[in-house]
Computed example of a mutant assay.
Amino acid sequence: MAEADKQSVELAWAELCLQLPCSYVDHPFGPDSTVFKVAGPDRSRGRMFALLLNLHGETVLNLKCEPALADQQRSEHPQITPGYHMNKKHWNSVRPGLDPHYVRELIEDSYDLVVEGLPRRDQEHIRLQTKIADGSID
Rank of each mutant, 00 (worst) to 15 (best):
D5M: 13
D5A: 15
Q7D: 12
S8D: 08
V9E: 09
V9T: 12
L11K: 15
L11P: 04
L11T: 13
W13N: 08
C17H: 06
C17I: 05
L20K: 10
L20V: 07
L20H: 09
P21F: 13
V25T: 08
V25F: 05
P28Y: 06
P28A: 07
F29L: 12
F29H: 13
G30D: 09
P31Q: 15
D32T: 12
D32V: 09
T34S: 11
K37H: 11
V38K: 03
G40S: 06
G40K: 07
P41W: 04
D42N: 08
D42C: 00
R43K: 12
R45C: 01
G46T: 03
R47Y: 00
A50C: 09
L53W: 10
H56M: 02
G57A: 11
E58P: 01
T59S: 12
T59L: 12
V60R: 15
L61Q: 04
L61G: 03
N62P: 04
C65M: 14
A68H: 02
L69P: 00
A70H: 06
A70S: 15
D71A: 13
S75G: 05
E76V: 04
H77K: 05
H77S: 03
I80N: 06
T81Y: 01
P82H: 03
P82T: 03
G83W: 08
H85K: 05
M86P: 06
M86E: 03
N87I: 08
N87S: 09
K89W: 06
K89V: 10
K89I: 07
K89H: 09
K89C: 01
K89P: 01
H90L: 10
S93F: 04
P96M: 11
G97P: 06
L98S: 00
D99Q: 15
D99F: 14
H101E: 11
H101G: 02
V103A: 01
E105W: 10
I107M: 02
E108D: 00
E108S: 00
Y111A: 01
Y111W: 02
D112S: 06
V115C: 10
E116I: 02
G117T: 07
P119C: 13
P119H: 15
D122I: 02
Q123R: 14
E124L: 08
L128P: 01
Q129H: 06
K131C: 05
K131Y: 08
I132S: 08
A133G: 07
A133C: 08
D134S: 09
G135M: 06
G135R: 07
I137Y: 11
